[in-house]
Design a protein around this nucleic acid. Structure first.
Lengths: 226, 226
DNA sequence: GCCCATCCGTGACCGAGATCACCATCACAC
DNA sequence: GTGTGATGGTGATCTCGGTCACGGATGGGC
């Protein structure tokens, strides 16, 4: 049912500027594909000839060391996309992408993507916006890794995730292990730091759902600026 | 002399696709401005209404902690540009930019920049390319910070910089302090690690110029992938 | 020349956080 | 229920690298 596909695409910021007719054309070019939890959607160093939009589920973008340690560069949820870098610059994939839960993705082939972008300045602009956003986040992450200690980086992560909801509750369940990979620390350290946050009254945790109780205290833990 | 300005702009990748006439128009829109070594070109959180191209000298893009510690996100040399993020997404500046040496910059105002990009798909595409490149580098840096120890991060930096020249000599003089800020370590640690590299025969140093002697050894120190 | 500002080298100390080693829960599947 | 795999908690160690405290080298300006 191409119509519902087009409806979905209309909710994706990248395509928000497209006309209904264009959306329908688009919907015909893409294919949905399903991935089981844990399966690898694309490998670092792959040639990279497709663009993906998350239709359901969540995926993580990760770098891995030879010994199995990993960093999560980002977690992408419904409506978010990946794979554009390799299509823009022709370089190989820069990271692995792995399904964190059973997921369904829309796939668009290289040529179709490129045509859409080139023929549509608004899409190009939306892409620039998205890449800018990611670059800012990446730079912030670099700053956090160097300038903050682990509790500080965790606090920052919590604030960031809480901001997506009502400002308090963190919707998406994150395991300690996942948080560890996100902030570049060990699982044990996360466990201890979160315990301390709870004891300090800054957050509460019930069954893997974290609620921010004292935003200001967390912020104090994260400020770099003078 | 606008002509020479246009000639210079023609060498900047971002503008390479522009016609000679367009370059001349462009050259009339920009102004050169000089900055003494150490002066702050723009502050984090500034509103950000200009775009800059380095005409001479080098500038560093930095994040600073309240206590004065800093991370260098990047060093930009002649022909490189900054300030586009704030113009694309309208957000405030994401970092400080500071002149590392006496520098001369071309400045383009927000509206002129935006017009150029929107009226010129090739420029938009070149910008996408540039942002992609930066995003990849930022992600690599995140990976290095989490997955590599300090000597590994230094090795990576050296290889990266050597790649810009003949593959051996690192042209631009980097102080230990600067390297420290680039890899997120202390000056002392850099000093000790470089001594070890020299003793191992991986590099040589004569008067602040580093030459890579054993590329393979350095690479072994930096590989994340299995 | 001589100053003064950067820059570099190295030892001593110590602390945040990784690692190791367990055991306790939890959530499902069967 | 009972088993099994993914999670979470916590103590005991150990180590990388930051910090402190020097002192020495280098180099441009007057």
């Amino acid at each position: 049912m191409p119509q519902s596909t087009a409806d979905f695409l209309a909710t994706v910021p990248l395509f928000r500027s497209l006309s209904p007719e264009e959306l329908v054309i688009f919907a015909q070019l893409i294919r949905a594909r399903n991935y089981a939890r844990g399966s690898v959607i694309l490998f670092e160093d792959d040639p990279g000839d497709a663009f993906f939009v998350v239709r359901s589920g969540r995926v993580k973008v990760v770098l891995m060391a030879a010994d199995g340690r990993e960093v999560i560069l980002g977690i992408l949820g419904v409506g978010e996309h990946f794979g554009e870098l390799a299509l823009i610059d022709g370089q190989p994939r820069s990271a692995h992408v792995i399904a964190m839960e059973d997921a369904s993705l829309y796939v668009l082939r290289r040529e179709d993507f490129r045509q859409r972008v080139e023929q549509n300045p608004a899409v190009a602009w939306a892409l620039l916006l998205e890449l800018s956003r990611r670059l800012r986040r990446a730079d912030e992450k670099i700053g956090a890794l160097v300038l903050l200690d682990v509790p500080g980086r965790i606090a920052r992560l919590l604030l960031e995730h809480a901001a997506e909801g009502d400002g308090q509750l963190i919707e998406k369940p994150l395991t300690h292990q996942t948080i560890a990979h996100l902030v570049g620390a060990s699982r044990e350290t996360i466990s201890r730091a979160l315990r301390d946050f709870v004891q300090a009254g800054w957050i509460t945790m019930e069954r893997r759902r974290i609620r921010v109780m004292d935003r200001a205290a967390l912020e104090r833990r994260t400020t770099l600026r003078a």
